[in-house]
Amino acid sequence: MTPAADRARFPGVGPATSDATSGRAEAVLSRLQLLVTRKLDGLLQGDYAGLLPGPGSEAGESREYRPGDDVRRMDWPVTARTTTPHVRRTVADRELETWMAVDLSASLDFGTGQWLKRDLVVAAAAAMVHLTVRGGNRIGAVVGSGGVGGASRTGTGLASARPGVLRLPARPGRKEAQGLLRAIAATEIRPGRSDLGALVDMLNRPPRRRGVAVVISDFLAPPEQWGRPVRKLAVRHDVLAIEVVDPRELELPDVGVLALVDPETGALHEVQTADPRLRQRYADAASAQRAAIAHQLRAAGAAHLRLRTDSDWLLDMVRFVAAQRHARTRGTTR
């Protein structure tokens, strides 16, 4: 578990159980806003300050055609001039609506690096909120908090759509966005695992106009549970999947007999980590699991960002944004 000294360095947010903790959460969210504004705003100047572009009808620049592009957007003059197929991008000419599916299952209440995984979930949500809620853009969220019992007090007066799920409607304005972040930060993680597939499917119902959908989770649920809902979501929306990972989920250290408790079931296991074959099998299984997650997201056409508890999440996000912008402008002829 993360030492208190490390937790004080990053502004992680734990379950809100007292007024003092609530005050700390407010300070944490203010610091997150400052970090995001300083580090990311300069990279995202444009029509929409989101990690992914919003759809629209106004013509934008051209780029080379890639498999999967809509042939109805072919730019025939540029194609004829360059003899290479090009498509015309569009610039959003209306407000953007962003929805987040935030998974706060019990497995997120874990961390051996600088922060807990739930800290990174809150940080990722804060980044998305602060980068999209401007110019009348709207942002909402559905939050899964593990087993039956719903979410903790949030001060919003909103009820869960189902046990263990909190729905926060999409609203414009920074004040409403801050309320949404406070509700996410104050959500109590309960024993059990949220149904990630059902959580993602809530972004499909009711049908919404095209926008951006963000799924924040450790994606430890079986891919067959959430793969189809993500593919369905990507048919209509630009989808960004933010995967939160701890290094101990990728490999085991050699520390002798290690007692482990499954946070979702409470089951206790003792593992002899001095066995090199066991550590290798664990690493191989973890690698295969992460490869399956990446394959499922790639098959759905979702952008994939991985954040680790032992690395600089802001730097990882900056690199991701830069790569996304480069990919979107590659082949531009204007």
Rank of each mutant, 00 (worst) to 15 (best):
V200A: 14
V200Y: 10
V200C: 13
V200N: 09
D201K: 12
D201E: 12
D201M: 10
D201F: 07
D201A: 14
D201N: 15
M202F: 12
M202G: 13
M202E: 14
M202A: 15
M202D: 14
L203K: 00
L203E: 03
N204I: 04
N204P: 04
N204E: 10
R205D: 14
R205Y: 09
P206V: 02
P206N: 06
P206Y: 06
P206H: 07
P206A: 10
P206F: 03
P206R: 11
P207N: 05
P207A: 08
P207C: 05
P207E: 08
R208I: 06
R208L: 07
R208H: 09
R208F: 01
R209Q: 13
R209Y: 07
R209E: 10
R210A: 09
R210D: 03
R210I: 01
R210Y: 02
R210T: 00
G211K: 14
G211Y: 09
G211R: 13
G211S: 13
G211N: 13
G211T: 12
G211P: 15
V212D: 01
V212P: 04
V212T: 05
A213R: 14
A213I: 03
A213P: 02
A213V: 12
A213W: 04
A213D: 05
A213K: 11
V214I: 06
V214C: 01
V214T: 00
V214Q: 00
V215Y: 04
V215G: 06
V215E: 05
V215L: 08
I216T: 14
I216C: 13
I216G: 14
S217P: 01
S217W: 04
S217D: 03
S217L: 02
D218R: 11
D218I: 07
D218H: 11
F219C: 09
F219P: 07
F219S: 05
F219R: 10
F219H: 07
F219Q: 08
F219A: 09
L220M: 09
L220S: 03
L220G: 04
L220N: 01
L220Y: 04
L220K: 06
A221P: 04
A221L: 07
A221M: 10
A221Q: 14
A221I: 09
A221G: 11
A221D: 11
P222A: 00
P222I: 03
P222C: 01
P222Y: 01
P222N: 00
P223I: 11
P223Q: 11
E224N: 10
E224T: 11
E224H: 14
Q225R: 15
Q225H: 15
Q225A: 15
W226K: 02
W226S: 01
W226C: 05
W226H: 02
W226P: 01
G227E: 09
G227H: 09
G227K: 11
G227F: 05
G227P: 03
R228K: 13
R228W: 08
R228V: 13
P229F: 02
P229T: 06
V230D: 06
V230P: 05
V230Y: 07
V230M: 12
R231S: 15
R231Q: 15
R231Y: 12
R231G: 13
R231E: 14
K232F: 12
K232D: 15
K232N: 13
L233R: 02
L233G: 03
L233H: 05
L233I: 08
L233C: 10
L233W: 04
L233S: 02
A234D: 01
A234S: 07
A234K: 01
A234G: 06
A234Q: 05
A234E: 03
A234P: 04
A234M: 05
